[in-house]
Write a protein that binds this DNA or RNA. Structure first.
Length: 274
DNA sequence: AAACCATACAACCGCTTCCAA
DNA sequence: GTTGGAAGCGGTTGTATGGTT
């Protein structure tokens, strides 16, 4: 008995999302929050699989996403964390508020990899790439380039940050696995890199401002939404679309629900947008 | 102006992990 | 302890866009 597909693929739309679909999804999530993604497309009136909806939301529509290229400091963080965590993009993204794993992964593959290679650093090992001379020498001695064969004597580059292309890879620590501690922010957000609460369904690391509310178990009181930018597609809708949104709700005790927090921020978003 | 190529990034796919039954 | 469902992750692909010839 095979496993059920994640979604009924028949009749489901694939490919780029339209503005209309984006609107539907945003509307639905702002009204209902994030419940089970499988049900979202049906309830939101979308001909997409839940997975696709989740991806679209987390990677593109989430209002707290930063857009645009990663800053130099963000790149540095990515490089630093990559040296410790490898291709654990979601973990890396958890340390960069407003950035998604997909975004970081793409940026790594298209920009950072090249930069590091240009600087003579192996993006995989974060160690200096062997020069041609060294390569020929190695081939003579049939020695495989063992990047981590001798961590204790690993070369740590010193490259002063003297230009836009330069990274301080000397800040990339070479550490033992047990030494790896994902840095927390001063705001003392629960960024437990791998710790799991036994009472919570929270499975994975989240950055409080970037993805805490992506977890349905997170209480509204905990939600903090930073200053946000809507994606371009949302800009294009015009104000009428915003006016049509109706997600004002109270929980009966005068407390604001997560929807209300969105609503509060909606005003802020509007101010920023228009 | 057209064809071709390179780049960037959105989206998909398949696998893994986790949890509840 | 086992199984199935749901969500998440990372690798890969597809496509739009810009640059070059």
């Amino acid at each position: 008995m095979g496993r059920q597909p994640c979604c009924d693929k028949i009749g489901l739309k694939k490919g780029p999302w339209t503005t209309e679909e984006d609107k539907k999804l945003i509307n639905f999530i702002l009204n209902n929050g994030q419940c089970c993604w499988r049900a979202v497309p049906k309830l939101a009136g979308l001909l997409r699989c839940g997975k696709s909806c989740r991806l679209r939301w987390t990677n593109y529509l989430r209002p707290d996403l930063k857009r645009g290229l990663l800053s130099e400091s963000e790149e540095k963080v990515v490089i630093d964390l990559h040296s410790q965590l490898g291709n654990r993009w979601s973990k890396i993204a958890a340390n960069l508020p407003g950035r998604t794993d997909n975004e970081i992964k793409n940026h790594w593959n298209t920009h950072i990899k090249k930069k590091l290679r240009k600087m003579g650093i192996d993006p995989l090992t974060h160690k200096p790439l062997p020069s041609e001379e060294q390569l020929s020498h190695q081939s003579q001695h049939h020695q495989a380039p063992s990047a981590y064969s001798d961590l204790s004597t690993a070369v740590i580059l010193h490259c002063p940050l003297d230009g836009p292309e330069a990274f301080c890879t000397d800040e990339v620590p070479l550490m033992e696995p047990h030494e790896i501690i994902v840095p927390c922010t001063p705001s003392a957000t629960p960024c437990s890199s791998s710790s799991r609460s036994s009472s919570s369904k929270t499975k994975r690391t989240t950055w409080s401002s970037s993805s805490s509310y992506s977890n349905s178990s997170v209480k509204a009181e905990e939600i903090q939404i930073p200053s946000m930018e809507w994606p371009e597609s949302v800009y294009l809708w015009g104000t009428d679309d915003f006016m049509g949104w109706d997600f004002i709700s109270h929980d009966g005790e005068g407390k604001l629900s997560s929807t209300d927090l969105f609503n509060q921020n909606q005003e802020q978003w509007k101010c920023e947008l228009f």
